[in-house]
Design a protein around this nucleic acid. Structure first.
Length: 291
DNA sequence: ACCCAGGCGGGCG
DNA sequence: CGCCCGCATGGG
């Protein structure tokens, strides 16, 4: 099959925004390529390249998938969690004015389901950092250490995200060269640990406590990053990552500016948003950061 | 110049 | 356990 013989299909979808989903600092933000003018996203899954576009209204439109990857449709459905009962989720987390405003402003923003290892790397990169620089660091990582994706004419058309085993020979100094800074030593440790000591693909996505305890054994993964991996790498909506923005936003809009501990905020989120806490969190984070 | 960013590990009390 | 500190780097 020639490279230009791509498989295209259309998925009808309600309440979906490719733009907000991409831009809201999830793994796709860090290694995908989004074109704002055409509202299209290109990303790689392993050796496959997927082109995803969106047409129509946020409330009711269609996703156009173009790829030579036979399972591209299933990949997109899984990645964007299109089978979720989004109307019920919105109803559940629309608990107050802040959430309603966030949902109105960023309607259609989905919590994505990503590869666990890729999510781990992206959020190790995220610590004590800003979104723009995280993205540059991750793109540098893929460019430097990802394996080439070639067409039938042996032409390089992209690079895939490096697996943990692909990074075993990469040194701390190499990671510093791509801008990782003090996180370089964490990447070395994570690559080792996730190759030899922990199979990320055998963890139970539904076991929140189990995920947290296993993931925090990775050097450089603490409570917050583990919550991000549980949420965006395993789809565990119980996870409620509390970063500086979420903490600040909760304190300001839910506790009249009073300082709260992370433990208190976790308990608050669990009681208020329950099984959709992670979904609510993405709106708290993104709206809180941009308000 | 100064402050901050999707925090973490390590050391200390 | 909780608290506090240093940490690399670039953008506002």
């Amino acid at each position: 099959m020639a490279y230009d013989e791509v498989f295209t299909n259309i998925i009808k979808v309600a309440d979906f925004s490719l733009k907000h989903t991409f831009e809201s600092a999830q793994p796709l933000t860090f290694y995908g390529h989004y074109n704002n003018a055409s509202n299209t996203l290109t990303y790689a899954n392993g050796q496959h390249i997927l082109n995803v576009g969106f047409e129509g209204d946020v409330r009711r439109g269609r996703i156009v998938v173009a790829s030579r990857y036979a399972n591209a449709i299933d990949d997109v459905k899984k990645r964007f969690r299109l089978d979720d009962d989004i109307k019920n989720m919105y109803e559940s987390v629309s608990t107050d004015a802040f959430m309603r405003n966030a949902i109105e402003k960023y309607h259609g923003m989905r919590v994505t389901l990503n590869d666990p290892w890729e999510t781990t790397v992206c959020f190790i990169m995220s610590q004590f950092n800003n979104v723009k620089r995280i993205r540059r660091m991750v793109l540098n990582l893929v460019a430097a250490f990802g394996s080439e994706i070639k067409d039938d004419n042996d032409r390089v058309v992209g690079r895939s995200f490096p697996r943990s085993a692909d990074l075993l020979k990469v040194t701390e100094n190499d990671f510093k060269k791509i801008g990782a800074g003090f996180r370089a030593k964490y990447l070395v440790g994570a690559a080792q640990y996730c190759t030899y000591n922990l199979d990320l693909y055998k963890l139970n996505p539904n076991d929140y406590d189990g995920l947290k305890s296993e993931l925090t054994e990775i050097f450089g993964v603490g409570d917050k990053v583990a919550d991000c991996i549980a949420l965006m790498g395993y789809g565990n909506m119980h996870a409620f990552p509390i970063d500086v923005w979420v903490k600040r936003t909760l304190e300001k809009f839910y506790f009249k500016g009073k300082k709260k501990t992370v433990g208190e905020l976790h308990a608050f989120a669990e009681k208020r948003w329950g099984k959709y806490a992670g979904f609510a969190q993405q709106y708290l984070f993104y709206h809180g950061m941009n308000i």
